[in-house]
Design a protein around this nucleic acid. Structure first.
Length: 565
RNA sequence: CGGGGCGUAGCGCAGCUUGGUAGCGCGUCUGAAUGGGGUUCAGAAGGUCCCCGGUUCAAAUCCGGGCGCCCCGACCA
């Protein structure tokens, strides 16, 4: 491709709208253009990268036994009501009406469609296992698109769905996919970390995410430097430890004038935070929930939501708390009734806690579970934090941020049950198909690759996904043989199967070099009177500082070798 | 949905406080010189000042309403 003809202009200045590095570089390199919030056009350079990523993904999916197909974007809303996930997705679902006023959704994903399709084509255990995938545009009306291509509302995504006869089969498919994903990230130059994840609105059991560790990442990862434990903070667990505070004593009331927060109460009574119990109030699907947790810990709303099995969960407003007759600042489940009480399992990790007295300015000492209060649910609902102990090895947990570049789920049978995707086993018995699903956002992978690999000058593409292999850069063409030689080289490179960006513009060396760096093409070949004097060209790798003179003869083959290697 | 910011030429911005009909840099086009890291000089084109309404002799500027975009949070397969 000749740069003079390439559609897309490079920008010197950083676009005002872009905050994230990958976003800035994508815009400056003339690769993407925003149409509305979270919706982008991909210009030729970006399109080439997307296709390369897509092909890598496709190859690995095929290798793992996947069969590619194409599914509708327009989906009847009923299908989402049938699966029950329409409600869970809520406003994320783009909806529209056809001319007959029939409600439709733009597919945010395709589990429902594929399950229905499979239910019509699979009858027998002989048809299983099965892996089907598609690489298509998905639509999600995200509450807040951000970070350029990191979180968008319309985006290309690969989804593979596995169908097995039993859990053991699902385990096999799941492991195959994790392996395939590892290869994909490796080929894209991304050191992705496998972390345990919450399965969210999609439901199901096991779930893992692949994370690219990056400061700009939206997700917090809790990991253990001492072992291989790593989890999304939504899911992460830690050792809460036992709090030694003597044998249970008799409850006594203490006056705590004006003391409301754990900070204040603990300070006033001169006890550590871990010797207190904290009460937090939530509204789950419209009902007040009373949550108790040890004073030094924080509630993890995702865990809480999962335990409550509710669709909507939010903190109760001050007015709602008062309305419910709760004494904010001095509340505890002791002696209270009429609320659903959820306790973090830390309430049984110690004795003689300080808790609210359910009277203004009053707290209780020596509160013990379960002696003094009961809970409807006792479970881990705490947020794991860096500095706490690892549940697997006892090491000290650390925290970092990451960009989610892949997510795999063991769906189980809930969708196949709802949509009646069943098979008949050897004994003639009918069972729901056991499902898994595995997604990779292609555009996000592109953005993540840039986040992972760039410098002050621009993008540094890993060769397998670079839009072009070689940037052919002639200098000082007028009155010299540079043009002649460059044109010849261009032809040779193309003939050798190299992907070449040929900067045939009348620009100064600075402009060309800076554009070459910005676009991040792995190899730059400079032709100038100076190099031609020595029958050579200058070869420079984008990711290295030094360049070298290389003889003209055989340069195409040499490049070919370097790119393959 | 809550909080904050922004909207003026293709891009980045100034002008708005104190109303008088728009300017700078980059880019683009023309010409010349230059020649290894965004080169210099000369000239030119390019604007519904986000939209609607109001105040005024006069609105980019003041007032009201709306829309859009970005950031933080909520949220987010």
């Amino acid at each position: 491709m000749r740069v003079s003809k390439l559609f897309g202009k490079t920008l010197r200045e950083i676009p005002a709208e872009a905050d994230t590095v990958s976003h800035q570089l994508l815009v400056r390199a003339g690769m993407v253009n925003q149409l509305v919030a979270g919706v982008y056009s991909y210009l030729p350079l970006a399109w080439r990268v997307l296709q390369k990523i897509e092909n890598i993904v496709r190859e690995e999916m095929d290798r793992a036994g996947g069969q590619e197909l194409s599914l509708p974007v327009l989906q009847p809303l009923e299908l989402w009501q049938l699966s029950g996930r329409g409600e869970a997705l809520g406003k994320v679902l783009f909806t529209l009406y056809d001319r007959r006023e029939r409600p439709l959704a733009l597919g945010p994903t395709h589990e429902e469609v594929i399950t229905q399709l499979v239910s019509r084509n699979v009858r027998s255990y002989r048809d299983l296992p099965l892996m089907l995938y598609q690489i298509q545009t998905k639509f999600r009306d995200e509450p807040r698109p951000r970070g350029g291509l990191i979180r968008v509302r319309e985006f290309p995504m690969k989804d593979l769905y596995s169908f097995d006869t039993d859990e053991a089969g699902l385990d096999v498919s799941y492991r195959k996919m994790i392996e395939a994903y590892r290869k994909i990230y490796e080929r894209c130059g991304l050191p992705a970390l496998l972390v345990e994840a919450d399965s969210g609105a999609i439901g199901g059991k096991d779930s893992h995410e692949f994370m690219l560790v990056a400061g700009s990442g939206e997700d917090e990862i809790i990991y253990c430097p001492g072992c291989d434990y790593a989890a999304n903070v939504e899911k992460a667990v830690s050792v809460k430890g036992n709090i030694e505070n003597g044998a249970p004593r008799k409850v006594e009331e203490v006056s705590t004038p004006g003391m409301g927060t754990i900070e204040e109460v603990a300070g006033f009574l001169k006890v550590p935070h871990s010797h207190t119990l904290k009460a937090v109030f939530y509204v789950a699907d419209g009902k007040m929930v009373f949550v108790v947790i040890r004073g030094d810990l924080a509630v993890n709303e995702i865990k809480l939501k999962n335990r409550l099995r509710c669709t909507e969960l939010r903190l109760a407003t001050e007015a709602e708390v008062i309305e419910a007759g709760i004494v904010a600042g001095a509340a505890s489940p002791v002696g209270l009734s009429g609320f659903k009480v959820v306790a973090d399992d830390s309430v049984s990790s110690g004795t003689n806690f300080v808790a609210g007295g359910n009277k203004p300015d009053t707290h209780l000492r020596n509160v013990n579970y379960p002696r003094d209060f009961k809970a409807d649910i006792v479970a881990d609902i705490a947020t794991a934090r860096a500095g706490e102990r690892c549940a697997s090895c006892g090491g000290v947990l650390a925290s970092t941020h990451g960009i989610e570049v892949g997510h795999v789920f063991k769906l189980g049978t809930f969708l196949s049950e709802k949509l009646e995707a069943v098979f008949i086993d050897e004994k003639g018995e009918t069972h729901p198909i056991v499902m898994g699903c595995y997604g990779i956002g292609i555009g996000r992978l592109l953005a993540a690759a840039i986040e992972q690999s760039h410098d002050a000058k621009g993008i540094i593409w890993p060769a397998p996904i670079a839009p072009y292999h070689v940037y052919l850069c002639p200098l000082y063409r007028e009155g010299t043989k540079v043009t002649e030689v460059s044109e010849k080289l261009y032809g040779e490179f193309l003939a050798a199967g190299l992907e070449v960006l040929y900067d045939d513009r009348e620009e100064s060396p600075g402009v060309k070099f800076n554009d070459a760096d910005l676009l991040g093409i792995p190899f730059r070949v400079t032709v100038s009177p100076r190099t031609l004097q020595k029958e050579s060209v200058e070869l420079k790798r984008r990711n290295e500082k030094e360049s070298a003179l290389v003889p003209l003869a055989g340069i195409a083959d040499k490049l070919k070798g370097l790119i393959k290697g």
